[in-house]
């Protein structure tokens, strides 16, 4: 099992290196609402095939950054490229080809409340590929629903009948409907219980590995950061102040980063990871002795 995961991991890394690509490239971004400047001179690169966690205090513009990248928020200045294509100032029709290559999970799931879960998942397929016949479309919706870990009877239900966690999974199923290369997740585990959140993390990791996704993940959840993110970008002072693995971030001396990761919650998460690693190491040792 461990060897298998390692092999997958290796292949993934290989893929990323082979493309040597940058999925999202943001340069000198400035966004503002009236007098309030949210980003000023923000630079960020998201590598292909990685899970990038984006953290920052409330109001530092994490969601605004995501909205700017996906074209819902028009920046005052700056350049945004997704898969090498500039996204600023493009007409909707021109950006369509790129739009098909990403999926977005909004904070509350943003499911269409008048449609069932299955119909929600089918919306992007209907919209972009009307030539796919209804039977195949239903089958696609069915396995996407299973893929995100929803129960088999969730298809005909309406969003109002679902719990918060299930709504997020349904939103994820819709985001994955077109097999995107790039997935945006806005606080996917906020409001979930720890077990549900851990399961969601696990799901995200597995999907990312099977589908070779690039994931842009906004989160406040330290456990998520530790368990699934390849790199973490920290937003503060209107820009990205640091990007790197958690260990690299810990080595910097920015007070906010230190406070974030070395605060009581940060220490608890670190301890949990250390415990987990210790356990695995002990098991390996025990196996070796046998």
């Amino acid at each position: 099992m461990a060897a298998e995961i390692e092999a997958v991991e290796e292949e993934r890394v290989e893929k990323a290196v082979e493309g040597n690509g940058i999925a999202i490239c943001v340069r000198d971004l400035r966004t503002s609402f009236g007098d309030q400047v949210v980003h000023d001179g923000l630079d960020l690169d998201v590598r292909k095939g990685e899970i990038l966690g984006v953290v920052g205090g409330s109001g530092t513009g994490k969601s605004v950054l995501m909205r700017a990248i996906i074209g819902l928020q028009i920046p005052d200045r700056g350049e945004i490229e997704v898969f090498g294509e500039p996204m600023i100032g493009r007409l909707d029709d021109e950006a369509l080809a790129i739009r098909k290559r990403w999926g977005v999970l909004f904070q509350g799931g943003a499911l269409f409340s008048t449609l069932t879960v299955a119909e929600n998942v089918e919306v992007p397929i209907r919209e972009y590929y009307p030539n796919i016949d209804a039977q195949l479309r239903d089958e696609i919706a069915a396995y996407k629903i299973r893929m995100t870990g929803l129960p088999a009877d969730a298809g005909p239900k309406y969003p109002a009948e679902l719990s918060g966690g299930m709504r997020k999974r349904a939103g994820l199923a819709r985001a994955l409907a077109l097999d995107p290369d790039l997935l945006f997740l806005d606080e996917p585990t906020a409001g979930l219980d720890p077990i549900g959140a851990a399961a969601f993390d696990e799901q995200t990791r597995r999907l990312q590995q099977t589908l070779g996704l690039t994931v842009f993940l906004i989160t406040h959840d330290l456990d998520t950061l530790y368990s699934i993110c390849d790199r973490v970008a920290v937003l503060a002072d209107k820009k990205v102040i640091a990007v790197g693995t958690i260990d690299e971030l810990l080595a910097t001396d920015h007070p906010w980063i230190q406070e974030y990761f070395n605060g009581p919650r940060g220490r608890a998460a670190t301890a949990a990871v250390a415990r987990e690693r210790g356990k695995t190491a002990a098991e390996t040792q025990a196996d070796g002795r046998r």
Binding site: T116, A118, D138, A141, A142, Y143, I145, R146, M147, A152, D153, A154, G155, P156
Partner: peptide
Amino acid sequence: ELDEPVAIRP
């Protein structure tokens, strides 16, 4: 592995 009967419509 995901090929299981899933309810789609009421």
